[in-house]
Amino acid sequence: MSLTGHFPHRLLHGDVLVEEYAYRVGPPTGILVLRYPSAERATHFPEARDDHRHQLFWSPDGVLAVRRGGATTHLGPDQAFWAARGTTLEVTTWGAQPVVVACVREMPPQLVGVGAATVELSDSARAALTGLCRPGLPDDHAMDLKSVLLRGVTGPTRLESVGRGTGPAKQVAAAMLSDPADPTELTEWARRLHISLKTLQRDFVREYAMSWTHWRVRMRLQASTALLGRHSVTDVAHRVGWASPSAYVQAFRKEYGVTPGAWARES
């Protein structure tokens, strides 16, 4: 039985100081938890990752943006993103906010066969993740919290990869993910990338099977679902790039068949 508590190692991820909490990482039943404190800017987890462990990404205080191929999604503090080992994806915060990454070699039964998915986290699972980042935590207690965490992961919604290109549209999409309200128009993106507007327009259609305008509207609407219920509809509209809340409500109803308020009540 482990009677002594663990204290975090600290390491640099780029220029961000990361806290590392390791509990019995030798056996396959162990867990490694990385806590990225709030930085001055968005934290970016690129596609290259540790293929020896499954990973669960969670931010307790903000929205995470996840891209896999051409598919994108946003998730709030009640959700996390599951990535089985060998799965390539890109995770970005919206701004300066903490992120916790739990790394395990065990796959919960409810996630067997799931490569990349948005998952719901129960209250106890979120509390367990927070507890695993507490200095001085004994191994035995950590193993109990790990079990609570894995049991509290439910409702996987798969994120399928719908694009494999590496062209300019992908670069624009990656930038927009971390700031859906970015007002930059496609003409300016083309100028920054030193390509013609028509070339960038064609690449968007090739990569996402829709125009830039349609892609941006759908991305902003999907991003807004991670905020509904925690902020007013007016605030959400502004946070994802709509100057007019009424225009946002109209676009949301057209896409999802309900108003943002109704969506928040039903979620």
Rank of each mutant, 00 (worst) to 15 (best):
H74A: 15
L75E: 04
L75T: 11
L75D: 06
G76S: 05
P77V: 10
P77T: 12
P77G: 09
D78N: 07
F81H: 10
F81A: 14
W82Y: 07
W82P: 06
G86A: 10
T87E: 14
T87I: 01
T87F: 01
T88C: 04
L89V: 09
E90I: 04
W94I: 03
G95T: 09
G95S: 12
A96R: 13
V99P: 05
V100I: 15
V101S: 10
A102H: 07
C103M: 15
V104P: 00
V104I: 05
R105T: 10
E106W: 03
E106T: 14
M107R: 02
P109Y: 03
P109W: 05
Q110H: 10
Q110W: 01
L111G: 00
L111P: 00
V112R: 11
G113D: 05
G115I: 00
G115F: 02
V119G: 02
V119L: 09
V119H: 03
E120G: 10
L121Y: 04
S122H: 03
S122T: 15
S122I: 02
S122V: 02
D123E: 14
S124E: 15
A125Y: 06
A127E: 15
A127P: 08
A127M: 13
A128H: 03
A128E: 00
T130M: 12
T130S: 15
L132N: 06
C133H: 08
C133D: 09
C133L: 09
R134N: 02
R134M: 09
P135V: 11
P135K: 08
P135L: 11
P135H: 05
G136E: 10
G136H: 10
L137P: 00
L137I: 08
L137Q: 11
L137K: 08
D144K: 12
D144H: 11
D144I: 04
L145E: 10
L145R: 14
K146R: 15
S147T: 13
S147M: 07
V148Y: 02
V148S: 13
L150P: 02
R151F: 04
G152N: 08
G152Q: 08
P156G: 08
P156A: 05
L159V: 14
L159C: 02
E160G: 07
G163S: 09
R164V: 04
G165H: 03
G165A: 07
T166Q: 09
T166M: 07
T166G: 11
G167K: 03
P168C: 05
A169Q: 08
A169G: 09
K170N: 03
K170L: 10
A174R: 12
A174D: 07
A175S: 12
L177R: 07
L177G: 15
S178W: 00
S178Q: 15
S178K: 14
D179F: 11
D179Q: 15
P180K: 04
P180N: 02
